[in-house]
Design a protein around this nucleic acid. Structure first.
Lengths: 242, 242
DNA sequence: TCAAAAGTGTTGACTTTACACCCATGA
DNA sequence: TCATGGGTGTAAAGTCAACACTTTTGA
């Protein structure tokens, strides 16, 4: 870390003063913004600007404005950081340990978001904002590692029940790309034939009669998610016993 | 409603003044406290003391204190209302619509709790606090109907994966009681033989070599949940694709 | 002609469902 | 003796997992 960077850091004390309006209890949203780059699941992180967490990365978040819905605050964070506003976003849970924020009492509401990394040609280099492979993350500022893990757990839970994973892919994709993405999220190897069978039973995909181009092997068919499944809000899962 | 009751009601305005400390954004917890009385799943509700919701019932909740964990606040509400403190409690999600509370901006974090109704011989008659069959609830104060429905959905989701349902039963129970409880929660009829098979595979239960007494039919064996499953905190569900 | 992945079915193991009879108890 | 639920097994259907060969393309 350079001298210059050190001087720019806020302390918990200075942040507390600048956000004084919020402190009895402050409320924020934190977004686990996930993307996929053909190999790995990645999360968008920013270098923490708090001295207490110097050198660590943190999730993207902000305080909620008094006249702003929870979802609106999350969408605002997303829009500010990625330029995207038509994205999948789902609340996971609230985190509220007394000591989780060094500036004072801050309860945060965690969201996870799935975006197609090809859609944002944005200012990633600003603000030390970067994609990080989720599997390589050991430690984050605040309790953000715990938040990340909780959100990844929720994603794994949703992924076979609901067609949410497609938010991470471009509009047209091959079954190979889709399978690799499932494998990246679930952390398992899947049998190719069984995978294709399972997906075809779900009847989520539309065969658009196009083929891959510029692949160094036999091109596969391209598919797209059927329109009726392209909602950006998740539904509640209801499992049945019998 | 009597004249006397009307006079006691707070208005949003008076509540706003008395809770002024909390308002930029107020944060509360709301508890969906569920019990089971051998026939139905019931939820503990209190008659709303806000004029805006006069005649309606609401969940039990309170504002979070600045030095209090989210879970601690929920446990406090439970303890105050039921006298119980060793109960199952799990966070579901936060609700934060701008207009959800007439006194101002209040974000609430919803918990659901499972208790054995036989354990609390408490002051139910005070404060118009009563058990209500969940299936008969049409409308509640605030957005509490939505919160209730969301919590019930979460309960249904958890119930076959994790041994949480036993928190609603006395320590010793028969398989019939257990089956009826599953049916009440899931809203389905289950085949008795298949149910017993499925439960026995899970290996959650200990045969304590006692029989039901005072039943008007052949007494069934009594079981108890094995000690290793008797934790009061739920675990995250992780579903696997293959 | 090689490397890489596409495309495609079958079998056996396991899981789930549907279903019926006799037994023990209290009223 | 009747009503109620206890206790128990099997067969058929459905689902899931394992597995291999031929084809198409680009290098």
């Amino acid at each position: 870390m350079t001298e210059r960077t050190l001087q720019q850091l806020k302390t918990a004390e200075t942040e507390k003063i600048s956000h004084l309006d919020y402190f009895n209890i402050g409320i924020s949203v934190d977004c686990v913004i996930l993307g996929y780059d053909e190999k790995e699941l990645k999360v968008l992180l920013i270098k923490s600007d708090m001295q207490e967490f110097s050198g660590l990365y943190s999730l993207l978040g902000d305080f909620i404005k008094p006249d702003e819905d929870l979802e609106a605050a999350s969408y605002r964070v997303l829009k500010e950081r990625t330029g995207l506003d038509d994205v999948f976003l789902e609340q996971v849970k609230a985190f509220g340990n007394i000591t989780r924020h060094p500036s004072g009492r801050v309860i945060t509401i965690a969201y996870y978001s799935l975006i197609d990394v090809r859609n944002h040609k944005l200012q990633l280099d600003l603000n030390e904002l970067h994609w990080h492979p989720v599997n390589e993350i050991k430690k984050l500022a605040f309790d953000h590692k715990q938040i990340l893990d909780t959100c990844l757990g929720r994603l794994r839970q949703q992924v076979m029940e609901h067609p949410v994973i497609f938010n991470l892919l471009p509009e047209k994709f091959s079954l190979r790309e889709l399978q690799k993405l499932y494998q990246a999220i679930l952390g398992v190897e899947l049998d190719r034939r069984n995978f294709r069978k399972k997906i075809s039973i779900k009847d989520w995909l539309l065969d658009i009669d196009e083929m891959e181009v510029n692949v160094p092997h036999r091109p596969g068919k391209l598919y797209t998610l059927k329109k009726q499944y392209r909602n950006k809000a998740a539904k509640n899962v209801v499992l049945q016993m019998a």
